[in-house]
């Protein structure tokens, strides 16, 4: 017997990850993507047509009409709160693209709205679902490297286009865009919160004239004394063989583990393209994330990645900006 199909709505395709999540949902036999909301009518109706879904430029009306089980929010960072509150008001579970919001105030309001509604709000941190990252966590939590002491981490990337470069929509550049993935994984592995952040933040350093931060080196101290650095820079040029990386070199008192989450790739030098690219062959972590979220919706919770984890990762990024302004370490919580 096939289970009852869950109905899903995509809330905006502003963030390009929406395409991947929508594809992962469309491949499942037990989910039907029935609606697309987007304030960009051209982008939204094109996506809706591809999915065979209804399009609307008004999210509350779309939710009221379709009564979906859940929504995937991929609007601009500054619009997450508006869209999440619409979902909570309609009694719809939500998966929200990272960062959870561009301010702590928005993140807290979102958490409160979903608590009141008794619905799941989960944050899309796909890196947790990478099998190498999950194995790293097992090994560290299992004591293989002894007591974890410190980690040197990167989440490099290429410079993204569009609203990512408009601070009023994104909340900032490379630091807010790229701190949260690794910050979340470290909190998840250590089961500890950050207590202090120092950061060097570079504006227009790698992309002259950008007018936004495009380079960041964070130094983060956690409860219990563990410390880590995170390089969040948009430092991979267009000619680099891939979009970027997630690396964590973690040292304990009995050993060390070097993680390169996207090392699972084949090298491909192609004269037609005039460059060398790395073709990934590892698992599709977006698909594993979607599977886990759908499972949670079916069970009625709890959220696989609770909203508080999204808020705590955002707090580390916002502390980095504050530290750069003060040229001094900043204590957490903010």
């Amino acid at each position: 017997m096939s289970p009852l199909k869950l109905k899903a709505v995509m809330a905006s395709f502003a963030h390009p990850h929406a395409n991947s999540y929508a594809n992962c949902l469309a491949r499942r036999e037990d989910v039907s993507v029935c609606g697309v909301y987007d304030d960009d009518a051209q982008r939204g109706s094109a996506a809706a047509k591809k999915l065979g879904a209804a399009y609307d430029d008004n999210l509350p009306e779309l939710l009221d009409r379709l009564k979906p089980d859940f929504a995937v929010i991929c609007s601009e960072n500054a619009a997450h709160r508006r869209d999440a509150e619409a979902c909570a008001a309609a009694g719809v579970h939500a998966l929200c693209e990272k960062p959870i919001a561009h301010t702590l105030e928005d993140a807290r309001a979102m958490m409160a709205a979903f608590e009141r509604a008794g619905r799941i709000l989960s944050v899309a941190f796909p890196v947790r679902y990478s099998p190498p990252v999950a194995r790293l966590r097992e090994k560290v939590m299992g004591g293989e490297i002894g007591l974890p002491m410190a980690a040197s981490c990167t989440n490099h990337g290429r410079m993204p286009p569009g609203w990512f470069l408009d601070a009023s929509m994104s909340g900032g550049g490379a630091v807010i865009d790229h701190t949260v993935h690794v910050a979340d994984v470290l909190r998840w592995i250590l089961a500890a919160d950050a207590v202090e952040v120092f950061a060097e933040v570079g504006n227009s350093l790698l992309h002259p004239g950008l007018g936004l931060d495009d380079a960041g080196l964070l130094s983060v101290k956690f409860e219990g004394g563990f410390f880590a650095t995170i390089d969040t820079s948009w430092s991979r040029p267009k000619s680099f063989p891939t979009w970027g990386d997630v690396t964590i070199n973690i040292f304990g008192d009995a050993g060390a583990i070097e993680l390169d989450a996207f090392a699972q790739n084949a090298l491909c030098s192609d004269d037609r393209a005039g460059m060398t690219v790395w073709k990934g062959w590892g698992d599709n972590m977006d698909a594993l994330l979607i599977d886990d979220f759908v499972r949670a919706v079916r069970c009625g919770g709890p959220a696989p990645v609770p909203a508080i984890d999204g808020l705590k990762a955002l707090e580390i990024a916002l502390a980095a900006y504050e530290s750069a302004r003060r040229v001094a370490p900043v204590a957490l919580p903010l």
Binding site: K139, I145, G255, A256, Q264, N265, L267, C268, S269
Partner: peptide
């Protein structure tokens, strides 16, 4: 063009 895979040059996890 050229294609290359290698189990050891870039493992996802190296424990020492």
């Amino acid at each position: 063009g050229l294609l290359h895979i290698d189990s050891a040059s870039k493992p996802a996890l190296k424990t020492s």
